[in-house]
């Protein structure tokens, strides 16, 4: 039941477990059970589709429309001025740049982490597995304060790093560190189920056919993981771009250097400039949407190219 409804939902929201994209094919192999009078294979499609669309509209679309509607109270010139002021543009670079770097970092290390958690059994594995979720559960302000305490010049990590000439807290590096922290679970959790489903036989087959370890990783494991890695990347990136609570404590918030775009939005709100705030927010949203769309397309492309079978 759950398996049959999945493809119907797969078009909406972010496909969490891209390996299931292979399911439609399984469905197609069962044409024997002829369509019922409704003419559809899937049970309850009109109802579930209706519920999905209504839900999506209320939960996601409506607030977004309200956001854009508010920006229309600005004239075009005022909009451009609010959105492309040099100080605001500087924050786009910081926010999106740091978020991209953090997401890349998380894909690399989150990938290794997921691999270790799935493939190896070691004492304390369950504990480590639970630790991964902590950045989800922690109030972001707490995370920010904790990170700042560690990376400040009198902190456990901050002191030795500063001795090496690397300042983390109150610099853009601090922003990156906070983004890595909050983004990690997204990569690990999207990758884990895919790795779990990935039969070890393929690797053994590759090895027995004479492939080196590196070749096995590059030609066998990575292609199968790419869609999940991309999803994890997209989620970690999106979360990092929108993050405010934890970053604000560690960033230092110096204009042109370590200000993030959400801070600009808050700044505008503090001046009761609702329209300006929503204008900047809508630009953020458009950039995020375009990037996420690109990632989703890339994901679809890799999925098609790899034929969905490792």
């Amino acid at each position: 039941m759950t398996a049959t409804t999945t493809p119907a939902n797969a078009g909406f929201g972010t496909p969490q477990y891209p390996s299931e994209a292979s399911l439609p094919r399984q469905l197609e192999i069962q044409p024997a059970r002829k369509m019922r009078s409704s003419g559809r294979v899937l049970p309850g499609l009109p109802l579930s589709l209706g519920v999905s669309l209504t839900y999506l509209s209320i939960v996601v679309l409506l607030p977004l429309v309200a956001l854009f509607a508010r920006t229309f109270s600005l004239t075009f010139d005022a909009f451009i001025e609010a959105v492309f002021a040099p100080r605001v543009v500087a924050t786009y670079l910081v926010s999106f740049g740091a978020a991209l770097l953090a997401a890349v970092t998380n894909v690399v290390f989150g990938g290794i982490l997921a691999w270790v958690l799935v493939r190896y059994s070691f004492p304390g594995r369950k504990l480590v597995d639970t630790l991964i979720d902590l950045p989800f559960a922690l109030p972001t302000a707490v995370a920010g304060i904790a990170l700042t305490a560690i990376y400040a010049k009198n902190g456990v990590l901050g002191a030795p790093l500063e001795a090496l000439g690397l300042k983390v807290a109150f610099t853009p590096i601090g922003i990156y560190v906070a983004m890595v922290f909050i983004g990690l679970p997204f990569v690990v959790r999207t990758l884990q189920p895919v790795l779990q489903d990935h039969e070890i036989d393929f690797e053994e087959a590759a090895a027995s056919l004479g492939a080196s370890r590196l070749r096995t990783i590059i030609r066998v494991i990575l292609p199968a993981m790419t869609p999940a890695l991309l999803t994890g990347f997209a989620l970690a990136f999106a979360r990092a771009v929108g993050e405010y609570g934890s970053i604000i404590f560690i960033a230092g918030n110096v204009p042109y250097v370590s200000e993030i775009t959400p801070l600009i939005i808050i700044t505008k709100l503090e001046q009761y400039d609702y329209a300006g705030a929503t204008a900047v927010a809508s630009v953020m949203l458009v950039i995020s949407f375009v990037l996420l769309l690109a990632i989703n397309l890339l994901q679809a492309w890799t999925a098609r190219r790899s034929g969905r079978t490792p």
């Binding site: 109150f170 604000i248 404590f249 230092g252 918030n253 110096v254 204009p255 801070l263 808050i266």
Partner: peptide, 11 residues
């Protein structure tokens, strides 16, 4: 001379 501009006084 200000190196850290927190968002609030307690910060």
């Amino acid at each position: 001379n200000v190196k850290v501009l927190d968002t609030g006084a307690r910060g």
